[in-house]
Amino acid sequence: MSHKVRVWFNRWFAVGYHYMNNIRHNPDGLEFEIYGTHRDAEHVSFQACDYTEIEPALPGDEYVAYCLDFCKRHKIDVFVPRWRMINIVRAIASFEAIGVKVVACTNLELLDVIEDKGNFYRSVEQNGLMVVPEYHLVHNVAEFKQAYDDLTSKGLGVCFKPTRSEGGLGFRVIQPNYNALEELLDVPNVNISYEQTVQILSSIESFPELMVMEVLEGHEYSIDCLASPTGELLAAVPRRKADGGRARLLENVPELIRLAEEVAQFYKIPYNYNLQLKYQGDIPKVLEINPRMSGGLHISCLSGVDFPYLAVKLALGHAVEKQNPEFGILASYVEQPVLIRKLEQS
């Protein structure tokens, strides 16, 4: 390409700021123009962009039309979507027809499996890929009560989360000794009582599917993965919360890397994705797969694997060799001020 490669991020998290800079300051000296869009006119990721635009509030199909128009107007080469990913993947042929490389899992059937936790757990169980937590899928308060009784009868703690959600949205842990006043005066957290949960869920005849599952007590790992467009695993970096705060450890855990290899061989997810597991005793149990760059990927890049840039490089058709991550790295993160603009004084 004679011009700088144009890469677009749509409505990303704040950490998109880091991923954009990873791509810009790549070790190969490839030149990029970074485009960013968001509903928030002052979103911090805009500070890493060459061009920014405020997105309109649109439903799915209309939003896809906006994306296609944006790509045409700005001659985008590589699109890294986060917002409305399923809608965008449904229209993948339209993006390919105008020459846009989309850094995403473009297999719609597979994306529907891994983005829905109920579908994902059933797939994992049926194919014997990993151990899943004890869980129930519920749609009304009677089913919730049955699920709670079953899990507690086995001596397990209970938590729940919507089967379709992102990050920690909707995640709650039921505390048997919940003290409403103490919780009210404490820092905000995910705890809730059984009685409160039942009261809320009883207020409606049925609700969007919830996964009610055992609370896992061991270390939690996020395995950041990089794969070729055909799903060949090129890197897997296990990253765990090293304490109750912000410390993260990039750790060589052979059984987790083996699981990542087996998941890659079976699902063949391309580019960047994140596999989350948590231990119960000596058993790692799967939580979910995020088919995109994770919120902590910038920390995993300290392993020497430049995940965001390498994904874009792969999408452009360049060869990327199997990576050799460095492990045994303890890291943390701090807030860093980013100047958005100087306001005129009246």
Rank of each mutant, 00 (worst) to 15 (best):
M1F: 04
M1Y: 07
R6T: 00
W8C: 00
F9Y: 13
F13I: 01
Y17W: 13
M20C: 05
H25M: 05
L30K: 06
E31G: 12
E33D: 12
A41R: 15
H43A: 15
H43T: 14
V44T: 14
E53V: 05
P56G: 13
A57N: 03
Y66E: 04
H74G: 00
R82G: 06
R82D: 10
R84G: 00
I92V: 13
I92T: 04
F95G: 00
N107F: 05
L111H: 01
I114Q: 04
E115I: 15
Q126Y: 01
P133V: 10
Y135W: 11
L137G: 12
N140Q: 03
V141Q: 08
V141C: 09
E143V: 12
Q146A: 13
S153E: 11
S153P: 02
G157E: 10
K161R: 03
R164P: 01
G168R: 05
G170Y: 11
L181E: 14
E182D: 06
P188L: 06
N189L: 03
N191Q: 08
I192S: 03
V198W: 04
E209M: 14
L234E: 03
A236I: 07
A236H: 02
V237Q: 03
R239A: 08
K241M: 10
D243K: 06
D243G: 04
I257H: 05
R258W: 04
L259H: 01
L259W: 02
I269V: 07
I269S: 02
D282L: 06
D282E: 13
I283A: 09
I283T: 15
R292N: 08
S294H: 03
G295T: 08
G296P: 08
S300D: 05
S300M: 06
C301H: 11
S303I: 10
S303P: 07
Y309N: 02
K313Y: 00
L314H: 03
G317L: 11
G317W: 11
E321F: 06
I329W: 03
V338M: 09
V338R: 10
K342Q: 11
S346A: 14
